[in-house]
Write a protein that binds this DNA or RNA. Sequence first.
RNA 1: GCGAAAGUGGCGGAAUUGGUAGACGCGCAGGUCUCAGAAGCCUGUGGUCAUUAGACCAUGGGGGUUCGAUUCCCCCCUUUCGCACCA
Length: 853
Amino acid sequence: MVKAFPRHRYTPAPMPYEPKLIEEKWQRAWSDAKVAEVDVAAPGDKFYMLNMFPYPSGDLHVGHGRNYILGDALYRYFRMQGRAALNPMGWDAFGLPAENAAIKRGIHPRQWTLSNIEREKKQFLRWGILYDWSKELASCEPEYYRWNQWLFLQLYRRGLAYRAKAPVNWCPSDQTVLANEQVIDGRCERCSTIVVQRDLEQWFLKITDYADRLDEGLDTLEHWPEKVKLMQRNWIGRSVGADVEFAVPSLSKSIRIFTTRPDTIYGATFMVLAPEHPDVAALIADNADRDEIETWIAGVRNQSNLERQEAGKEGRFTGATATNPFTNEQIPIWLGNFVLMQYGTGAIMAVPGHDQRDFEFAQQYGLPVRVVVKPANGEVPSAEESYSVKDDSAVAVDSGVISGMLIPKAIERIIEEIERLGIGRKMVRYRLRDWLISRQRYWGTPIPMIYCERDGIVPVPEEELPVELPLDVPFTGREGNPLAKDERFVNTKCPVCGGAAKRETDTMDTFVDSSWYYARFISANDSTKIFDPSLVNRWLPVDQYIGGIEHAILHLLYARFICRTLHDMGLTNYEEPFTRLFNQGMITKEGFRTASGNWVSPSEVENGVHKPTGTPVVSEIGKMSKSRYNVVPPDELIDRYGADTERVYTLFIAPPEKEAAWSDEGVVGASRFLNRVWHMGEQILALPAGGGSESAALIRKTHQTIDAVTRRFDRFEFNTAISGLMELSNAIGDALSAGADARESYAALLKLLHPFAPHITEELWTMFGNEGFILTSSWPQADTALMIEDVVTIVVQVNGKLRGQVEVPNPPEKDVVLAAIRANQKVQQWISGKEVVKEVYVPGKLVNIVVKG
RNA sequence: GCGAAAGUGGCGGAAUUGGUAGACGCGCAGGUCUCAGAAGCCUGUGGUCAUUAGACCAUGGGGGUUCGAUUCCCCCCUUUCGCACCA
């Protein structure tokens, strides 16, 4: 169909397209008209869309822009579709970088944060992004964080917030503890420092109470990426098994273990406890090597998790034994560095025959291996490794009542037996741990708790909220939280007895702030309550949530948890906060580094050589960062080409969920496209009034484009939506060159282009004498009748190879098609003299003639 | 090690349910305009062979199903990401 149009030959009109002039004008116009402000109480077909609110670091580059630009394009599309679309924005404004800036440069965290917010807000405006700023919030303001504190008190009241001493992750560089989710490969998520274990008393939120609901809820999230759901599922780590008590004669008590393979209990030849297990002291009390064992335990406990793993498997024999409840044998109780106190019961029954870890440990210490599972087909498993198959292809052997049973059946049966004997029960356990929310840092929400010598831990009464963060504290950078040194903050009165008491000086993990902010937007200015449940129930859950994959577990898991607690408090009527989730891919850019690994500025590189030093460099595509000298700042780009060009290029570059490499040359294509659209507008304005009529071909192309672009919007296929608009604009250009009219098609083009290039389309729309904003006009409707081609091309294949094409009137009739093929010389050459075995006719598409000989 | 996703021109990428592989754009080449350049415009642009007509090859590699495979199935290779002693 494209072939019908020769390339555009129109002459550009003289008036230049100057984005600078029109972009500021329309940004002001939208803002003055408050076009994006939504009255949440007003009726309408609601659509709540949300970009994850950013941490205001101050510098946004074109990579960040992708997230917001695609959100804005969607927002404008839904507006034009007539939806009551809400698109709010706020700031995840607490956090370490602000505090570090204070230490390094003497700027107060609040001032640093607020000035960054100002800069980023300007950047959003310059990108032409529309947010409902009347609902803006910043988590560092008391108006926001008081509700964090309120929420914490509700959780405390319900037993979901508790203080406990536990081995926790400590980042020596950031001088604070971290949640499990913030430790990546044994290192701090923020600064990559190796995390060490410390025993500290800390505040936890009981997310594990919700493990099953968080796991099951994933099944209801049809519009979430499978990848994210899988990551959450793995993180929650549900496993089904059994708890079993093993009697320890020397202690006259029993030790409980957890296993997912109770069917292998006849093969349990020893037991292993975590070095931290509470019964260890009693078990080794009479051991002659007690001192050595204790030294070893202390050593293991001092290791980071990373070091522990790198050390390989190590253990010590306690000297005590336990009774295997099924074989009644005495089996040795060992300590092992590979058994984790935080999972299960901190104790395992070791079945070296059928668990690789137990096998390795047994080999190392010469412990017996017993085979109790065999392949159902009778082959003897290798002695080199454990045989851990647990499906119907394996069978239990030498295992009392379950001998001969297929494994899934054997597991079921042995659990019945365990329960009948009263030594244990079926058990579901999770890898997920409780959420550690204490942080020994200043720039966060103070935890609203008071310690009284007489009354113990006392919550701050709700009417005394917020517990405000004092602003005039010294930032020295030395160990310890500045809050803890502020006497005026720390010293307070006990709400119960009125006596002297001390405040909690830890602040909350900033992921608490972001776990419910999406609901606060609905009541952002309500100073009397966390939010208005009736309004929140109308607007939530968020219909479309957009953000980076880096939050697949952290933020999204915490938000799903807190969402359920709000539900259970009776405040809301939904369990999942985000109906649809979209993760945009990262924008990358080429950078250059020398053989020694130093990054150099691209401006100093020529033909693969770093000019100042003469060193050869290699190109590497990666994340934009200052240290790689590959950051593209939007301001220069906008000054040169305009925000509309950046927007079009950003969405055209690749499918939005994929990683994409930014190309400075590629931007030019988007700029040319908008220039052509601009000049076409001028040409159409110069057409005589009344004018001619548009060709059927152009009308067809227009309606086909409306249809395609609409479908592509619904599927987030922005790159092909834009290429479709380029095709339409090419067709319009050709029509104009041929002296034909194209007014109607052009008007449709402007509307379809608006979500991508909002400024230029508003300007042209006005130039054509339209009143109001193109944004508030309606999305064009495709007329399917006008989309139908009057001639269709039928592809002719011979033995599956393309040998010709015939054109027939639409709709095509089989007889007509076959007649056309018989009249086609080229095709006939390929079949003449051969026997036609078969003719495959795909209506309206192709004919494949199968010949022989 | 386990799990997931992906692999198409020089580059980014396109291809409803299996039905013309390479849309759209970048880059490149030639042309036009210009004193010259930039910008714009026009034409061409997967590879090999051929003067042309055209033929053959080609969607990471190998097999299979099918009239027909980028698309479905099996094996292998590569890359990226997630998890990693969770009993």
